[in-house]
């Protein structure tokens, strides 16, 4: 019944679109929570501040996106029981950090690769922590944490396996995989992520079943992804929103599909897998 359910707000960048689509398609699959979404693009996520229990944009760009995508200037978040931050830091883009700088324990270095600049492992760890702390989620999470409610952080999807042909954009990542360093680097990334974010939130990993060849997402879960659409979040402000109302708006309001060469965004099937993860975590709270 509306009003009786605990309320969770998903705050995300374009990667929250897949979750929104999934929820719009079958909200009854996650019945325990009244679910709301708030979306802005890319790093604007980190430009939302918490002032007097309201999420407010800190920049003109964030303000315009709050208006465009959510039809609100700010959102009263004081009444939510939990928060989910979707996206805000990219794993595969960190491949550039170790493209030319590696420590002795990298498998490629152990195997005799002498092309990289040798550095200490803790230097690389510091770089990863700096990248995560400076990311949109790294900036938003401490603000959300002040509300003292459960927070779940959802990663952006791993690169689509379809993207393996695109060396121009993802060469550093493919090289990481081909060198045999991806698992090692991912371990370092996860450790850094826990150090930076782990005390403030439950950090989710990608759904195990979504991955192929380790660090790629199955193309079936990426093709057909859609751009973040405009939804009417005015109801959030009014505090009278219902999952059903949100769902109806979302069904009509999501953006067009991404171009075929978008290998970074996931579709609703993937979104549903992540929703399962999130709701599983929230159900234990």
């Amino acid at each position: 019944m509306i009003g009786d359910l605990p309320r969770v707000l998903f705050v995300g960048n374009s990667h929250s679109g897949s979750l929104r689509l999934a929820y719009a398609a079958e909200a009854d699959r996650w019945p325990g929570w009244d679910v709301y979404f708030l979306g802005v693009l890319s790093d604007r996520l980190g430009e939302l501040d918490l002032r007097d229990d309201r999420l407010v944009p800190m920049t003109g760009a964030a303000s315009r996106q709050m208006q465009y995508y959510n039809h609100v200037n700010s959102v009263d978040v004081g009444g939510f029981d939990a928060f989910v931050i979707v996206g805000g830091v990219s794993w595969f883009r960190t491949a550039a950090i170790c493209a030319e700088h590696r420590s002795l324990d990298f498998p490629s270095v152990v195997a005799g690769d002498e092309t990289a600049q040798l550095v200490g492992g803790r230097v690389l760890g510091a770089m990863l922590r700096g990248r995560i702390a400076g990311s949109a989620v790294g900036q938003l999470l401490p603000r959300i944490e002040r509300l003292q409610k459960p927070v779940v952080v959802v990663p952006e999807p791993a690169l689509s396996e379809d993207g393996r042909a695109d060396d121009a954009r993802y060469g550093a990542y493919h090289a990481l995989v081909q060198r045999g360093d991806a698992t090692h680097w991912l371990d370092m990334y996860r450790a850094a992520r826990m150090q930076v974010l782990g005390d403030s939130a439950t950090i989710l990993d990608w759904p195990e079943a979504a991955l192929v060849d380790g660090p790629y997402t199955a193309s079936s879960l990426m093709r057909g992804s859609r751009r973040l659409g405009r939804i009417d979040a005015a109801a959030i402000v009014a505090g009278t929103s219902a999952a059903r109302a949100q769902r109806e708006v979302a069904e009509d309001g999501e953006g067009p599909t991404h171009p075929d060469d978008d290998y970074e965004h996931a579709n609703a099937t993937y979104g549903a897998m992540v929703m399962d993860q999130v709701m599983s975590v929230l159900s234990t709270r």
Binding site: I97, V123, A126
Partner: peptide, 16 residues
């Protein structure tokens, strides 16, 4: 002779 990776904050780079 030993350039840094790109996209890393200045503070981390200088400390190292």
């Amino acid at each position: 002779a030993e350039p840094s990776p790109r996209g890393i904050g200045q503070a981390v780079l200088q400390q190292h």
